[in-house]
């Protein structure tokens, strides 16, 4: 699953030679928002290990100033953002839900797509204890040059509106 060209496509400043994580989020999805502190933590922890994070906004018609407001409100700092207005990045990554994470290795291959962890067992059913840290496990494997144990998991949250019903 070659991926290199999406960067050119979307104008995403993806650091060459680095492992990248894309976080697909939206500003009015409660599950996506509840992950803000964990995303910030993850980017801090793995930033130190050379991983590059990006936040990909999938709201319908969100503008730059609303994004800035949202970043501030939820305490996001130092993570590059991109507004995926035409769903190009989501489509290429085959991300369908916010929040969803996609890990791309240094060669541009997608190595992981899915949930950040299993905090939600179902919509409206948060766990009392997280028992699977799928994204962290995937990143650890990629950094260690090993195969990712579970390269694809089901992300739970709000659906990304596909381009064909965006209209106009």
């Amino acid at each position: 699953m070659r991926f290199g060209y999406i960067f050119v496509f979307a104008g995403l400043a993806c650091a060459a030679g680095k492992t990248n994580v894309l976080f697909f989020i939206s500003s009015d999805c409660p599950i996506s928002n509840s992950y803000a502190p964990e995303i910030q933590h993850l980017c801090g922890d793995y930033g130190k290990k050379g991983v590059s994070c990006s936040l990909v906004y999938e709201d319908v018609g969100i503008d730059e100033s609303s994004v800035q407001k949202h970043l501030k409100e939820y305490g996001y700092t130092g993570i590059p953002i991109i507004i995926d207005g035409r769903r190009k990045i989501a489509t290429r990554s085959r991300a369908t839900v916010t929040p969803e994470a996609v890990v791309i290795d240094t060669k541009g291959d997608i190595r992981y797509r899915g949930r950040i962890d299993n905090f939600y067992a179902a919509l409206g059913k948060p766990r009392q204890q997280i028992t699977a840290h799928d994204l962290r496990d995937a990143l650890d494997a990629v950094l260690a040059g090993k195969p990712v144990p579970n390269p694809e998991t089901k992300a739970l949250g709000c659906y990304i509106v596909p381009p064909d019903i965006l209209g106009k």
Binding site: A121, A122, K125, P126, R127, Q128, Q129, T131
Partner: peptide
């Protein structure tokens, strides 16, 4: 059981 996602103990 561990199948109960709301189980506070794991």
């Amino acid at each position: 059981s561990a199948d109960n996602p709301r189980n506070p103990s794991n």
